[in-house]
Nucleic acid binder design. Sequence first.
DNA 1: ATGCATGAGAA
DNA 2: TCTCATGCATA
Length: 177
Amino acid sequence: LHHHHHLLHGEPASDPRELEAFAERFRQRRVKLGVTQADVGAALASLNIAGVGALSQSTICRFESLTLSRNNMTALKPVLHAWLEEAEAARREPAGAESAAGSPDDDDDARRRRRRRTSIAAPEKRSLEAYFAIQPRPSSEKMAAIAQKLELKKNVVRVWFCNQRQKQKRMKYSAAR
DNA sequence: ATGCATGAGAA
DNA sequence: TCTCATGCATA
């Protein structure tokens, strides 16, 4: 018998504390169900919610750890909530004998055109952080100069600054802002 | 769990 | 060109 009536106004779900609480409950209940983050992401597709498809393990992980933007968290919450309800309901009520057999498919060495991820060494990363502290959005010229000084591709430097800015906007960090 | 990257859409 | 949501690759 909880008399918190914030359900009277459609979606108030932007409350950071609410999101934080939900994320934690979500993770605990997911684990209790014995489902992985990747499983959840894939299961979202079969949920048949308008405009909602599968999501990656990365995204589910970030949702649970609040390392997404507040808007992103808010948008994902109802979807993950829906999945959780369904998953727990299915647990109680078997509904049908769904004993999926083991998959005999294993495409180990099929497509090998994998994207290579460039790794920025620690010293260079420290320099970038120092530059960022002074100027989070350097001009194109400035970034070119930085790139040359650190011997990195200009595009790598550009993307690094973009990601660094985005990182500051994640819930987990913006609170301490 | 997180680093570097992509692509669609805003500015 | 940047932002934003998102993901592949990898620590």
